[in-house]
Amino acid sequence: MQTDVIEQCDCDDVAQSERRQTDTTFMPGVDIVELDNEYVLRADLPGAKPDDIDVQLDRGMLTLHARVETRQTAHQTRSLLHEYGVGDFHREFKVGDAIDTAGIVAETANGVLTLRLPKAAAARPQRIDVRPTT
């Protein structure tokens, strides 16, 4: 039931307008963990400087975008092994009412973006006191 609280959105039109200098945009891998009072979303954004990571929330749509500069710049280089491409990262998620959107916190370390999405009060587990009847 809870799986649609943070749901991925496959809207390509939004990505279109975000296109920057790089040719290819990649979808970052994410983990989403549910804790008692919050969801924690971690996204791999290797090569993105903290200032180049953009997180936006607009009408229930959470957008992650990171600009990544080309690293293999020097000319007169010869590629010997090419196992991955380098480019911007982009991914979108729908955020349901169960999230307290005002309380979302973002931080980044070692190329990983961590978003903490607190559950709205109504979605948190609550302890109900059980009293003996008198």
Binding site: R42, D44, L45, P46, G47, R71, Q72, A74, Q76, T77, R78, S79, L80, L81, H82, E83, Y84, N110, G111, V112
Partner: peptide
Amino acid sequence: NVWEAGDNFYAEAEVPG
């Protein structure tokens, strides 16, 4: 990714986290 430039090779890996 591995590339060669002049007297050096460069090896690069994405290891976020």
